[in-house]
């Protein structure tokens, strides 16, 4: 599983080099709510807080925010 992080880097390079050009008027599907990175913000806020307080890892989707006594 350690190799996943290297595969991620390789995927990054491949994707940046190999995307088809999508014109602005062709991006309707990409604007759908279910295509957003985080469709339900409030649910995600609590879910990530729970994971961060029960696991040794946190972060990865932005800069770390304020803390709580839960971890």
């Amino acid at each position: 599983m350690i190799t996943l992080k290297y595969l991620t880097g390789l995927l990054f390079v491949v994707v940046l080099c190999g995307c088809e050009t999508v014109q602005p008027w062709e991006r309707g599907i990409l604007a759908k709510e279910e295509m957003q990175w985080q469709p339900n913000v409030m649910e995600a806020q609590f879910r990530y807080q729970v994971y961060a307080s029960k696991e040794a890892s946190s972060g990865g989707t932005g800069a770390a925010g304020g803390g709580c006594g839960c971890n």
């Binding site: 602005p24 990409l30 604007a31 295509m35 957003q36």
Partner: peptide
Amino acid sequence: SSALLLPIYQG
């Protein structure tokens, strides 16, 4: 929303 979307992270 041409250049649109591409949310940077939660929020």
